[in-house]
Design a protein around this nucleic acid. Structure first.
Length: 565
RNA sequence: UGGGGUGUCGUCAAGCGGUAAGACACGGGUCUUUGGAACCCGCAUUCGCAGGUUCGAAUCCUGCCACCCCAGCCA
């Protein structure tokens, strides 16, 4: 379905190549995709998924799916189910390697006792405020906690009692004893366990202490035999802690953490928190609203897994912050759909056309190819033609500008697959609004070719008024008016939501072949764009289509350029 | 005035001492029963800036500048 993309060099591939050459991991490549089940996956996660699973595939290695579920107060099974669906939909397979950090709670706990035994961790009775105050600042070192010197046995006893549920939330934590004067704040005795009397979606009420990310992630990686632990840039500062934990503990191996720049896409947001607010505050219809950058949203919009994979490969992987143009994502779907979507005709904003010299009541059917670039590939469908048709309102102009090639008084155009027609006159209502465009057709041009060799500059799409299907069509545009809404300092990001991000057309007209369209099916509405039958609301007799992306529109560019002058 | 990163075309991004890949965008053209697609051509004498080393530097050295991240019992 998608053509193979060329493989580009990037710094992670270089690291792996070198490891392969040195035999560092005995030719093994093991990665993992480690989402926290606290939200829906978005296009930024797709970059990470494609990277981790992609690398594993390329090097004949493995990629695990591991839920980083160490904070039960934010997590839910709703999210784990959705994440698994989405990763599969994207086209990746973790086979039998589905893991949860919570599977390691007991081991993690034993390792923590080992740390205490080594004098490298202690129970701190300070309040969260006291801990914060003693942490120091970016330029000043922190102060030792009064509990830092607690004897090993006391630490062990207290930690066991923490596990046993003897203490309330927030009363104590277990901290790694590293260096309160470190210029790297992550090394100033980081908290590795906290007390939370919270029900966990997998372990239930088995635990009331939960390990922190830094402590959990490195050990989970080691337990799974991960070779290359790929994460985003903000964890660069955490790498010394990742390495410290693994150096102190008798873990099976020591994976290498590698950081890359996460994806930023123009005209949208990638923050899980803000995406949640978009949903909660009703700015969008849900996580799968086709305007959302979530993968469920993109899927409902009509984006294909192949397009998303191609996009992720094309944007590359590096360490510098970047903002990717929306056009690149759009280009990726167009490239994919251009090869796979059947071409049909649909009139989004109809205006009636009457062919005055066409016999009243007559209907004929044209066999139109679904894929004109290679007709045998997808076959034909019959398209009815009659005296009354609809064409796109914007395909007619009473006073056409210079480069306008479409219908206008006295102008002859081709009705795709049908006849040449010439506009004779228009009929208007009281308001002066055009209600009908009258034409004559040339019977000799049946099929769309003139036997006399006469050429016509414009070809427009149409549907037969009598046989067309009334449909709802949703036109989606970028969700925000600002290319980087998260970076705008002047406005709250909510003020930057594009009021025209959704236009719902309820009077669109479809050619009758579309009556059998199934939810999720993709089509190209010729000259308008790629559309998909809505996954949720499309039904036979009540068609609902979403515009995935427009076609490249040179005419609009000309119009815009003229306006700019 | 702490630490960690990053600066190569409008936007991404290769390049790893031998004389600036590619993609998107953009401009021009061919073709076209989608102003789509396809195809062709063009598009950084220059790599944040300033010095230095070298026969030779985007690549090495020195200094400077800009931007991003870090003070959760979040991940």
């Amino acid at each position: 379905m998608s053509t193979a993309e060329p493989v580009f060099s990037n710094f992670i591939r270089s690291i792996i190549d070198e490891d392969m050459a040195n035999g560092k991991w005995a030719g093994r490549v093991a990665t993992r995709f480690p989402p926290e089940p606290n939200g829906y996956l978005h296009i930024g996660h797709a970059k990470s998924i494609c990277l981790n699973f992609g690398l594993a595939n390329e090097y004949g290695g493995t990629c695990n799916l591991r839920f980083d579920d160490t904070n039960p107060s934010k997590e839910d099974v709703e999210y784990v189910d959705s994440i698994m669906d989405t990763v599969r939909w994207l086209g990746f397979d973790w086979q039998d390697r589905l893991y949860y950090a919570s599977d390691y709670f007991e081991k993690l706990y034993q390792y923590a006792e080992a740390l205490i035994q080594k004098g490298l961790a202690y129970v701190d009775d300070s309040t969260p405020e006291e801990i914060r105050a003693a942490r120091g600042t970016l330029t000043e070192p922190g102060q030792h906690s009064p509990y830092r010197g607690r004897p090993t046995q006391e630490n062990l006893d207290l930690f066991r009692r923490m596990r046993a549920g003897e203490f309330p939330d927030g009363s104590r934590v277990l901290r790694a004893k590293i260096d309160m004067a470190s210029p790297n704040i992550n090394l100033r005795d980081p908290t590795i366990y906290r007390i939370k009397h919270v029900h966990h979606h997998r372990t239930g009420d088995q635990w009331c202490i939960y390990p922190m990310y830094d402590y959990t992630h490195c050990i989970s990686d080691a337990l799974e035999g991960i070779t290359h632990s790929i994460c985003t840039l903000e964890f660069e500062d955490h790498r010394p802690l990742y390495d410290w934990c693994l150096d102190q503990l008798p873990v099976p191996c020591h994976p290498q953490q590698i950081e890359f720049a996460r994806l930023n896409l123009e005209y949208t947001l990638m923050s899980k928190r803000k995406l949640l607010l978009l949903v909660q505050e009703g700015h969008v219809a849900g996580w799968d609203d086709p305007r959302m950058p979530t993968l469920v949203g993109l899927r409902r919009r009509g984006y294909t897994p192949g397009a998303i994979r191609a996009f992720c490969e094309r944007i590359g992987v590096a360490k510098r912050d970047s903002l990717i143009p929306m056009e690149l994502l759009e280009k990726a779907v167009r490239d994919d759909l251009n090869l796979t979507a059947r071409r049909v005709m649909a009139v989004l904003d109809p205006i009636k056309v009457v062919i005055d010299n066409y016999p009243e009541g007559q209907v004929e059917h044209f066999e139109a190819p679904y894929f004109p670039d290679d007709p045998p590939a997808m076959g034909n469908r019959p398209v009815p033609f009659g005296r009354e048709l609809y064409i796109e309102r914007e395909d007619f102009m009473e006073e056409p500008p210079k480069k306008f090639w479409r219908l206008a008084p006295g102008r002859e155009v081709r009705l795709r697959w049908a006849y040449f027609v010439t506009c004779t006159h228009v009929v208007k209502d009281d308001q002066g609004r055009i209600t009908e465009v009258h034409c004559t057709y040339d019977p000799a041009t049946k099929g769309g070719d003139a036997p006399d060799g006469r050429k016509v500059k414009g070809t427009i799409h149409w549907v037969s008024a009598a046989q067309s299907l009334l449909a709802t069509v949703r036109l989606y545009d970028r969700l925000f008016t600002h290319a980087n809404p998260a970076a705008d300092k002047e406005h709250d990001w909510r003020q930057l939501i594009n009021p025209e991000s959704l236009k719902t057309l309820t009077w669109a007209r479809l050619e009758p072949s579309l009556a059998s369209a199934q939810p999720g099916e993709m089509f190209q509405f010729e000259r308008k764009g790629f559309f998909c039958a809505d996954l949720e609301e499309h039904a036979a007799g009540k068609p609902v289509f979403n515009r995935t992306v427009t076609l490249r529109d040179t005419w609009q560019k000309i119009v815009a350029a003229d306006k700019g002058k």
